[in-house]
Nucleic acid binder design. Structure first.
Lengths: 340, 340
DNA sequence: CTGAAAGCGCTAACAA
DNA sequence: TTGTTAGCGCTTTCAG
C-alpha cells in the first residue's frame, strides 16, 4: 500500500515557515479567536505557499470529531433508491448539514458482511453520527448502534415502541385526513394500496385509512386492501387486482405517489375516468409533480423539515450524548390538486 | 462537541489484560502472521472481554490507508440518481470492493462549497481513492484530484483526450452496431435521441449513429437528431418532436433505456406500431427489463465488468501511485429482444 | 497573544 | 515468537 501523499507539509513545517509556534498555526487553521491579525495573515501566507492541508486522521485522533455523518441505506432501501422521496430526503439532509461543515457519507449495507464492516467503521470513530431512513421493523442495526453509544437518528420508526431517536411524519393522521376527504366527496367504496407491511410507516397509513372509515361508521373490507411496496409497478398490479375484485371502487388511497401513479395507469387501462369515476390520493408528491400526474391530490410530507429535524436531533445527541432519546413527529398536509 | 465513546478500551489496555505486549495485540487484530496460536487466542479473549474496537483515526495516522474509497456524485449526476444504470453500477462497485475490506462512501457534491469540502476530506486522507461516474465535460474535479495526487478513476471520460484513469464502454461502436442493425432490417429513416451533449458519452453515441449512416452511404439529417438527457420524460418529448418533423421515421436509437421507454410511449400515443412501423433500440437495459418494455432491443454495457475494472484500476494506482494513467474500454453487446 | 509540551491510539521497526 | 519504542500530525492545556 503506497504511503499517502508522502511529502505533504505538516503543521510543524508551516509553523517553521511562518516563524511561529505550532499552536498558533492550529488556531489559525481552526479559525479560533485570539490571534493577532498580522500573525494570522503571516500564517495564512505560509499555508498558501506550502499548500498545507490538515491531516484529518491526526485531527480526529487528537480528540475531536470526525466531521462526518453517515446515512445508512440497508438492503430494503435499495429499491427505494430510485424513488423521488429518497433523493429529496438526501438533498434536504445535505442542505441541513451544509452549515455544520460535516461531510454526508452515504453507505450501502446490503449483506451481513457489509453491516459488520460499517459497524466497525462507525465504532472506529470515522463518523460522528448515523442517520437511517426507511427502517424495516426487524432491523437490528439501530440497536447495535445504540449499544455502541453512537448518536443515531432514524427517519421513521420500526414500531410504535421505537426508542432510538427518530423523526417521523404523522402518517396515521395524514391517511385519515385523506380518506375523510374522499368520504366527504361522496365516495363510498374506498380501497387502499399499502406499502410493504413490514414497515411501520405502511402500517400507520393503513391504520389511518381504517380509522377514517370507522369514524364514518363504515365497515372495513379486507379485500379493499392491497399490499404494494411503494413502487409504480406494485401500484399497477394492486390496482388491477382491486378493480377485478371490486368494480364498484370509487376511491383510492395509495401509500406513495409512485404507486398512485401506477394505480392511475391501471385505472385508465381499465377504462375508468379519473377522478370522475375514481378518485386517487397518494402519499408524497415528488415524482408526480415532475412527471405525468401533476394534478394528483397528495398527502405531503414536509421533506425539508424532516431533513432539518434529523440533523438537529443528531447534533443534540452529539452535544449531550446518552441522556435521552428524542422524537419528532411532523404534520402532513393534504394538497388538493384536482382540476375543476 | 462531546468526546467520542469516552471509556473505549485501547490496544494498550487489551495488551495489559491479556498479559502481552502492545505489538502482539496489534498483530492479532490485523491478522498478521507470526503469533503463537495460544497467544492469539488469549488476546482474542481479552478483546472480547473488553469489547475492544480499533480506533480508525489512530490506525490511519500511524501511516496506513484509510480503508475507504469515495464515489463522488456531482450535481449533474443527481437526476441520474433515479436511473437504474446508476444503482446497478453502485451495486457492482460494492461487490467488487467487498473483498478488499474497504468502505464505499457515496458523497454528493452539488455546490462549489461542497466540492471544496469534499476536496479537503479527500486530501485530508479520509479516503484512499476516488471514483467518479458520468463526468461532465467541463468538470474540473478530476484535475484537482489528480493534482492532489489522489488515486482517481472515472467511469466515462470528459473528452477524447482524457488523461485521468478511466473505464468506459465502446459507445461509438455500440451505437454504430445498433444503427447498422436497424439498416439491415430495412429501416431507412433513422432518428436518434441523444443524451446531454455536454457529456462525452452522449457525443460518442451520436457519433456512432452518424458513422453507421455514413458507412451505409446515407446522409445524416440534422433534424433527425433530438437532444435528450437520458430520462424518460426527455425521451417522450424528443420523440414527439421527431414524429412531428419526420412522420416517416421508422427507426430510433435512444441514448438510454429510460429515454427509449419514453420514446415508445410517445410513439404509441401517436398511433405508431412498435416495432412494425418503428423500431427502437436503447442503450443499457435495466429499467426496461424490469418494467414495461421487456422486449426492447438494447445495447448492453457490461456493468459488472465496469465496476470490477474501476476497482482494479484504483487498486493499481494505490499500489504504485503516479506512474501512469490507466484506461479500459469495454465492449458493448447488442441484445436483440424483439418478439417474432 | 503566543510557544512549548503532553498526549490522542496505533503501526512498524528493532531488539531480545 | 514477542516486548519495546519511536513516531504519525494534530489539538489543547499551561505557562509565559
Amino acid at each position: 500500500m503506497g504511503k499517502r501523499r508522502p511529502g505533504a507539509p505538516t503543521l510543524e513545517e508551516v509553523a517553521a515557515h511562518a516563524g511561529v509556534g505550532r499552536g498558533t498555526v492550529s488556531r489559525v487553521v481552526n479559525n479560533a479567536a485570539g490571534v493577532k491579525e498580522s500573525t494570522r495573515r503571516a500564517v495564512q501566507r505560509a499555508i498558501e505557499e506550502l499548500g498545507y492541508v490538515p491531516n484529518l486522521a491526526a485531527r480526529s485522533l487528537a480528540g475531536r470529531r470526525a466531521d462526518a455523518v453517515a446515512l445508512v441505506l440497508t438492503e430494503p432501501d435499495w429499491r427505494m433508491f430510485a424513488e423521488p422521496f429518497f433523493s429529496e430526503i438526501v438533498r434536504s439532509l445535505g442542505d441541513a448539514l451544509a452549515d455544520t461543515g460535516m461531510q454526508l457519507l452515504l453507505t450501502l449495507v446490503r449483506s451481513e458482511d457489509e453491516r459488520q464492516r460499517f459497524l466497525e467503521y462507525a465504532r472506529g470513530g470515522r463518523v460522528d453520527g448515523i442517520l437511517m431512513m426507511s427502517v424495516h421493523a426487524g432491523d437490528q442495526l439501530p440497536d447495535m448502534l445504540a449499544e455502541a453509544r453512537l448518536p443515531t437518528v432514524l427517519l421513521g420508526r420500526r414500531s410504535g415502541e421505537e426508542y432510538v431517536s427518530y423523526v417521523d411524519a404523522d402518517n396515521v393522521g395524514g391517511a385519515r385526513n385523506a380518506v375523510s376527504y374522499l368520504l366527504k366527496q361522496g365516495r363510498r367504496t374506498i380501497a387502499t394500496i399499502t406499502g410493504p407491511l413490514d414497515m411501520y410507516v405502511a402500517q400507520c397509513r393503513l391504520r389511518g385509512y381504517r380509522d377514517a372509515l370507522e369514524m364514518a361508521g363504515l365497515e372495513g373490507t379486507p379485500s379493499l386492501v392491497a399490499e404494494g411496496d411503494f413502487t409504480e409497478e406494485s401500484g399497477r398490479r394492486a390496482m388491477a387486482d382491486l378493480i377485478e375484485r371490486h368494480p364498484e371502487i370509487d376511491g383510492i388511497l395509495a401509500a406513495s405517489d409512485t404507486s398512485a401513479a401506477g394505480a392511475l395507469q391501471a385505472l385508465r387501462a381499465a377504462g375508468r375516468r379519473v377522478p370522475e369515476d375514481v378518485a386517487v390520493i397518494g402519499f408524497d408528491d415528488f415524482s408526480l409533480a415532475q412527471r405525468t400526474e401533476p394534478r394528483l391530490t397528495t398527502v405531503r410530507q414536509p421533506v425539508e423539515e424532516m431533513g432539518r429535524s434529523m440533523i438537529r436531533l443528531l447534533l443534540e445527541e452529539m452535544e449531550e450524548p446518552f441522556v435521552a432519546w428524542r422524537h419528532v413527529i411532523l404534520r402532513t398536509e393534504l394538497v388538493v390538486r384536482e382540476s375543476a
